[in-house]
């Protein structure tokens, strides 16, 4: 029997103290499988028969980062990203605004998480 895929809401973590104009590291993780859905055939007669489709492919296709209304980053991923990835990237915190990360998988399903950037010293 094929294993059941596990999905979860993404989580976003900002540094505990943020100063205005500082470049901060933002970490975001999501519980999402990343599979091609192909199975390797060990005794394939030709190279074209080495892989057969067992299940539909499922992976995170795009990750978009919005700071306020502006889209500041776009990550185009595919099935070569690991399961449940933890991504980290930088943002220049020059204003207090919501930081939103939107994950879209290859089946069109969206997962999003928002966290407010507040200046604290």
């Amino acid at each position: 029997m094929a294993e059941e895929y596990q999905f979860g809401q993404p989580k976003l973590r900002l540094p505990s103290t943020i100063q205005k104009g500082e470049v901060i590291e933002v970490k975001v993780k999501i519980k999402h499988p990343s599979r091609t859905g192909l199975r390797l055939v060990e005794d394939a007669k030709t190279p074209f028969e080495r892989f057969v489709r067992e299940r539909p492919a499922i992976y995170i296709k795009t990750v978009e980062v919005f700071y306020g209304a502006e889209r500041i980053s776009l990550f185009e991923l595919n099935s070569s990203t690991s399961d449940d990835p933890l991504l980290a990237f930088k943002v220049r915190a020059d204003r207090e605004a919501p930081l939103k990360v939107v994950f879209t998988n290859n089946q069109g399903k969206r997962f999003e998480v928002t966290e407010q950037v507040r200046f604290r010293t």
Partner: peptide, 26 residues
């Protein structure tokens, strides 16, 4: 060397402040 050669394209803008990406790949 891998069956899936591309491990992702990561686009940035000046609002990022630094070109930096940390990820996990197969």
């Amino acid at each position: 060397r891998d069956p899936v050669v591309n491990k992702g394209i990561y686009y940035f803008t000046p609002a990022n402040g630094e070109a930096y990406i940390s990820t996990q790949i197969r």
